[in-house]
């Protein structure tokens, strides 16, 4: 079965279940609107949805770029400096232990209702997976490659070894981190929008909720889900293209 037909079948199954829940539970439209109402709302509010989605997309992408830069930098520091390990590692773990939910109001207080607080939230939520995965990759460079480099280059030139061997060897691990980042980054942005904002899909959902526009809420949710899935697959495809020498085992990944 082709991917498109499989996708359509899944969609049909979800819509059917949705409709059945409404019929069986006798749910009024202000609790759960039916799929057609949501589709109609999607069409009616396409312009507004699109403009809010573009705000959220920008927040997610900026947060991802900054988070990836900061996370990669941290991982490199951890991999190459004992002092950094001593000082940064506890902070890294603490950054993960404190839920972003808990500091979201603080970030909005400090950075304002605009995009900055949402970007910071996205950055924080992807910082740990990016750093931890890349650091792991740097720590597990096959020792044989490092031995080879040491015989070829007896005087210690860590930069050359990093550039030609350790960094490329750790890229697949960084790619795993980026895949996780792509999957969780929308959480950060939407969370930020909930806490306080004037634009974005999260804002639109809260706004619609308070005005009992449940169909619009669902339309925003559908838009967000599409955005998140699209982001993940775009990142995945880009990484596959950038790392052709690191193919996945076909037995565990083939879907066709």
């Amino acid at each position: 079965m082709s991917a498109i037909r499989r996708g359509l079948a899944t969609l049909a199954g979800v819509l059917l279940t949705w409709q059945m829940i409404i019929v069986i539970g006798e749910l009024p439209p202000y609790i759960l609107p039916n799929p057609w109402a949501v589709a109609a709302s999607l069409g009616r509010n396409a312009g507004s949805l699109l403009s809010h989605a573009s705000v959220t997309t920008l927040e997610i992408l900026t947060g991802m770029v900054l988070g990836t830069m900061l996370g990669s930098g941290t991982a490199l520091a951890l991999g190459y400096s004992r002092r950094a390990r001593r000082w940064l590692l506890p902070m890294l773990i603490a950054s993960q232990a404190i839920p972003v939910f808990a500091i979201a109001p603080l970030l909005v207080l400090w950075l304002g209702y605009g995009m900055a607080s949402k970007i910071a939230m996205t950055l924080l939520i992807i910082y740990f997976p990016v750093t931890a995965n890349f650091y792991d990759g740097l720590r597990h460079v096959p020792p044989g490659w490092l031995d080879l480099a040491r015989v070829m280059l007896p005087e210690s030139r860590r930069w050359a070894v990093l550039r030609h061997i350790a960094l490329p060897a750790a890229l697949p691990a960084l790619a795993s981190g980026l895949r996780i980042a792509a999957a969780v980054a929308p959480i950060g942005a939407v969370l930020g929008e909930w806490v306080g904002s004037s634009a974005g899909l999260g804002y639109l959902m809260l706004h619609a909720n308070s005005r009992m526009q449940v169909d619009l809420m669902f339309a925003a949710l559908v838009t967000l889900a599409t955005l998140a899935v699209g982001l993940y697959f775009a990142v995945d495809a880009a990484l596959k293209r950038l790392l052709p020498w690191h193919p996945a085992n076909p037995e565990t990944t083939e879907t066709g």
Partner: peptide, 21 residues
């Protein structure tokens, strides 16, 4: 083990030493 770097082609693997230096 051959220790060839998978991201480099054969020629670049052969000249790895000079690039490291």
């Amino acid at each position: 083990q051959d220790l060839l770097l998978p991201w480099l082609n054969v020629l670049d693997n052969v000249t790895l030493g000079s690039r490291l230096r």
